[in-house]
């Protein structure tokens, strides 16, 4: 276990600074404003898709910056993708049933 004693190989060896997080926060607020504004316009089916796209962008910002994935090993993102993949596949297969169900 001696190989792991290097606990100080901290993910935050980078220089911490306040500025970047405030910028991200501003971006998140703008995106929120955007979703609310867009929701007022009737895009039909596109409304939900736009809302979800904006939400995904916001989540990406939170994951990458606020949750420091930018500074973690690439493996962490891989794991995030794995769990999203699991959910995504479940959604697709679920809709393999509901989309083609007669009577809907």
């Amino acid at each position: 276990m001696s190989s792991h004693d290097s606990h100080n190989e901290n993910a935050h060896a980078h220089k911490p600074s306040y500025g970047i997080y405030i910028l991200i926060w501003v971006a998140l607020l703008i995106l929120t404003g955007l979703t609310v504004a867009v929701a007022g316009i009737n895009f039909g089916n596109l409304t939900v898709i736009t809302a979800l796209t904006v939400a995904s962008v916001k989540s990406y910002l939170v994951l990458e910056y606020f949750m420091h994935l930018k500074h973690e090993k690439k493996m962490f993102w891989l794991f995030v993708y794995t769990s999203l993949f699991f959910l995504g596949v479940s959604l697709i297969l679920l809709f393999a049933d509901y989309t083609f169900l007669e009577g809907n």
Binding site: T35, V36, A39, T47, V48, A51, L52, V54, A55, K58, S59, V62, L63, F66, M67, H68
Partner: peptide, 26 residues
């Protein structure tokens, strides 16, 4: 503190999806 922070951001992310799906699909 970082872990508590991570937890808190997740709560935020879930809300990021709850908000448009419940409030903005009208």
């Amino acid at each position: 503190l970082e872990s508590a922070g991570l937890y808190w951001h997740l709560v935020d992310i879930i809300w990021i999806f709850l908000f448009p799906l419940f409030y903005l699909i009208a």
